[in-house]
Nucleic acid binder design. Structure first.
Length: 822
RNA sequence: GCCGCGAUGGCGGAAUUGGUAGACGCGCGAGACUUAAAAUCUCGUACUAGCGAUAGUGUAAGGGUUCGAUUCCCUUUCGCGGCACCA
């Protein structure tokens, strides 16, 4: 008899090589017939940034989860497109270059090589023919092309924008590099600096970005996050007047506020303006000599804070009294004007009326500065509001707007801002713009795309964009456009790269267009997008914006304009200590080591078994061994069964009902759970079946017919592709007709007749507490009266029912009986 | 601070159109095999009381709706993700 031990290392490498030779999943033919298109399945994993430290067990989870989906769908006859790529531009490679002098191109290349090797070792069935990397000129040519299309439509424009600036390092800092307002490298105080930068006008699509969410199958919380981010709110704009001493009526300064609670306007006891708006309107000219320096000091201080600090610091509110008085147009009341940074310059009108009785932030501010609190809505009705008393909030708003069109009008505000894409960095796609000697911007001519990222660049921070140090770049522009012309030195935000990669997959090698039009038609939209929760807002919003824009330009026939039909999220794999894995905590698990010790199948199945895909889950080294045990047991059981079939003296076991019930139950469970990505319960079902099987294994008779044995192998194949391929191969001796690979075979079917039991267990409760059980024939579960009578007559029920009055009898068919006493 | 999510045995988790809480795995305990160990297998394992049958308690805390709540509603606590230049 053969040895039933499984050598994972040898076996996995054998099949890896075999799959590679057969090019099993590189369906170079992405051009489907119309008939085949109905069965298309485009599976997308948020492509990864290839970090220098290699693949992380956290990467393994979503890749495996989608791979299982890909294999399951293929076995169910779908045409699967499962591409792979690398989000290869970005800050870490550049920072590494500053530190070591090694060019980001080199580190990125070797990081991608490492990732590619590791991903292949996991047995992820990607279509490598469509592989792409955003730093490749063949890719970023089209990133630049999209920039140019946006520019032509007026959706890319230049404006002033603030950046975090470290005066000591002489460099722009990412928010991530600012820690408590200090530079992470040198601990200097970070300041804000104004720069002329490029923006994409995503706000043109704000309403469609909200409405489109109705058309997609995304988790509701994700939709809500997007909706709240766009932050559409309906309200009113009201003009207040600043009371100044110099002028009487003629040119009184207007100050507009936006409010969603116009009904509370008679409860406004002060007004707050943002530092930015105060400066913009030059209100300092009205200040008294004593107030002026005070206010200006405050504004200076506020400007030093980053926006995030301002938002987070909201609970400890700061502000300064300007000494100016503002006139509420609804009752001519004079209220004081404060400058405070809890009001943001960029939202609404940059000024608010403060109603401390009905707004928590205003209340906190009022309490700190000793300001009046006036209640104007009680039990849903207005009070202290003159002619509006007694009205509901809604009625009051309507009446107020109707009565005073001269200074109050309804208005809709959005939190969404335009997308700032300029980065003063090297490792990104150059913005394809040149400036003429007068400083006017022109697009780089299309024949000059890709507008190559220069190589002769000094990465060390000098206070200016790194591309400025390239002689080649300047010379190139003068040569192509004329003397005195200069390039744009900034590069694009890496979010621009990642906003359209799922389109580029449909034609990754196409040099004549951003993607193959026919393949876009075939494969878009994406059928399942799996991304981490950290991408919920920005990446998805930007991608949807790009898709809608390209559709509007006629490049994409996608009526909904929604790129991702169904989307789900994976959770985070935490360290064994339950904390986020990080080098500094020393709790990082390396997938290579797990593969070496247990094999890729174990790693895959373990990660899928840890818990629900979307949950954060801590790593448990011992539980990995448990999964390995499970797979080795399967190997033992299957090879033993194959051996039994070869022994002609053995016969099929007669009473196999329990085993077959469990098998068909498991087939059903996996058929339902796998498409729902409920892998943890699917694996549990396979374990339950193998437990039943194992208990019978000492029998000298055959337990599973040949076909049933193959069905079981197929059931496990999407989850553990290596060991199942090996077992499938060994099962060829059974002489059944089989495919070249288990992964090309079809998904097993379950037989309903094994799933129905003759008797059903009913639970009997008294006052909602479990007291007894009874069995009842499954096809007579609608006999309510007989069932309740039987339950009441049970011997074990006597002690609960004797001498008691039953007030109510509840029967839930097939489930419970509840007898309610007093 | 704002937006979103979560909390179930010693641990990861299972169960929700409201109907037997704890599937499956880990760990732990006992046993079998073995000279022994490893490996493997069998049985047990929420908590409290009891030899046991059994009874009571129990899904972060408090309250509510219901015949019945892990599931629905309200309040609170704690934890996680995002907050526009990390990707």
């Amino acid at each position: 008899m053969s040895d039933h031990k499984y050598d994972h290392q040898k076996t996995e490498e054998k099949w890896l090589q075999s799959w590679e030779e057969q090019a099993l999943f590189c369906d170079s033919d992405l051009d489907l017939s119309e008939d085949e298109q109905k069965d298309k399945e485009y599976l997308l994993y948020a492509f990864a940034y290839p970090s220098g430290s290699g693949l992380h067990v956290g990467h393994v989870e979503p890749k495996t989860a989608l791979d299982i989906q890909a294999r399951f769908k293929r076995m169910n006859g779908k045409k699967v497109f499962f591409p792979v790529g690398w989000d290869a531009f970005g800050l870490p490679a550049e920072n590494y270059a500053i530190k070591t002098g090694i060019h980001p191109r080199e580190t990125t290349k070797s990081a991608i090589n490492t990732f590619r090797r590791q991903v292949k070792r996991l047995g992820i069935s990607y279509d490598w023919n469509s592989e792409l990397a955003t730093n490749h000129p063949g890719y970023y040519k089209w990133t630049q092309w999209i920039f140019q299309q946006l520019y032509r439509k007026g959706l890319a424009y230049q404006g002033e924008g603030k950046v975090n600036w470290c005066p000591s390092c002489q460099t722009v800092l990412a928010n991530e590099q600012v820690v408590n307002g200090l530079c992470e490298r040198c601990d200097s105080q970070v300041t804000q600096k104004d720069l002329k930068q490029w923006y994409f006008k995503i706000t043109d699509y704000k309403d469609e970005l909200i409405d489109g969410l109705k058309k997609v199958d995304w988790p509701n919380p994700t939709k809500n996050q997007q909706i709240n981010w766009i932050g559409r709110s309906e309200g009113a704009e009201v003009d207040f007047l600043i009371k100044t001493n110099e002028n009487s009526n003629s040119d009184q300064e207007k100050l507009s506020i936006f409010t969603t609670r116009l009904d509370t306007i008679l409860g406004a006891t002060f007004m707050v303006i943002s530092p930015e708006k105060f400066e913009e309107k030059n209100l300092a000219r009205f200040l008294s000599a004593t107030n002026k320096p005070k206010v200006q000091d405050y504004i200076k201080l506020a400007y030093k804070k980053t926006e995030e600090d301002r938002k987070i610091g909201e609970k400890d509110k700061t502000g300064v009294d300007t000494g100016l008085m503002i006139i509420n147009p609804f009752n001519q009341e004079e209220i004081p004007l404060f400058v405070a940074d809890y009001v943001l310059g960029g939202y609404g009108t940059g000024a608010i009326m403060a109603v401390p009785a009905h707004d928590e932030r205003d209340l906190a501010f009022a309490l700190k500065f000793g300001l009046a609190v006036k209640e104007v809505v009680v039990d849903g009705k207005l009070v202290n509001s003159a002619e509006y008393n007694g009205l509901t909030s809604q009625e009051a708003i309507k009446k107020m707007l109707a009565a005073h069109p001269d200074f109050a009008r309804s208005s809709i505000n959005y939190k969404l801002r335009d997308w700032l894409i300029s980065r003063q960095r090297y490792w990104g796609a150059p913005i394809p713009v040149v400036y003429d000697p007068e400083g006017k911007a022109h697009l780089v001519k299309e024949e000059h795309l890709p507008w190559l990222l220069p190589d002769d660049v000094d990465f060390n921070p000098t206070g200016e964009s790194p591309l400025r140090s390239s002689k080649e770049f300047k010379a190139r522009v003068e040569k192509l456009y004329g003397k005195g012309w200069t390039p744009e030195y900034d590069t694009m935000d890496t979010f621009v790269d990642s906003s359209w990669y799922y389109l580029r997959y449909c034609g990754a090698r196409d040099e004549s267009q951003f993607a193959d039009k026919k393949r876009l038609q075939t494969w878009m939209p994406v059928d399942l997008y799996l991304i981490g929760p950290e991408h919920i807002v920005l990446h998805l919003l930007y991608s949807r914006f790009f898709t809608k824009f390209l559709r509007d330009e006629g490049y994409l026939n996608l009526p909904d304009g929604e790129p991702f039909g169904k989307m789900r999220h994976q959770g985070m794999i935490l360290g064994p200590d339950g904390k986020k894995m990080s080098k500094s905590k020393g709790n990082v698990i390396n997938p290579d080591e797990i593969i070496k010790e247990y094999g890729a199948d174990t790693l895959r199945v373990y990660e899928m078994f840890m818990g629900p895909l979307e949950a954060d889950k801590p790593w448990n080294p011992r539980a990995v061994a448990g999964v390995s045990r499970f797979l080795r047991k399967i190997y033992r059981l299957v090879t033993l069964e194959i051996a039994k079939h070869k022994d002609s003296s053995l016969e099929l076991l007669e009473n196999r009902t329990e085993l077959l019930q469990k098998l068909h139950w498991a087939i059903q469970k996996l058929t339902l759970d796998l498409p729902e990505l409920k892998y943890n319960t699917a694996i549990a079902a396979l374990m339950e079946f193998s437990n039943v099987w194992e208990k019978m294994v000492n029998s000298r008779q055959i337990l599973l017919k040949k076909e049933e044995l193959i069905d079981f192998i197929k059931l496990l194949a999407p989850l553990a592709p290596f060991i199942t391929e090996e077992l499938y191969d060994q099962a060829r001796v059974l002489g059944l007709e089989m495919k070249e690979s288990v992964h090309l075979d079809s998904w097993p079917k379950y037989n309903q007749s094994f799933l129905q039991k003759e008797e059903t267990t009913l639970v009997i409760q008294v006052d909602g507490k479990l007291r007894a059980e009874m069995k009842w024939s499954t096809n007579q579960l609608d006999e309510k009266i007989a069932i309740i009578e039987h339950a009441k007559g049970l011997e074990s029920m006597a002690k609960w029912l004797d001498g008691k009055n039953i007030q109510k009898e509840i029967y839930v068919p097939g489930k419970i009986i509840n007898l309610v006493l007093a």
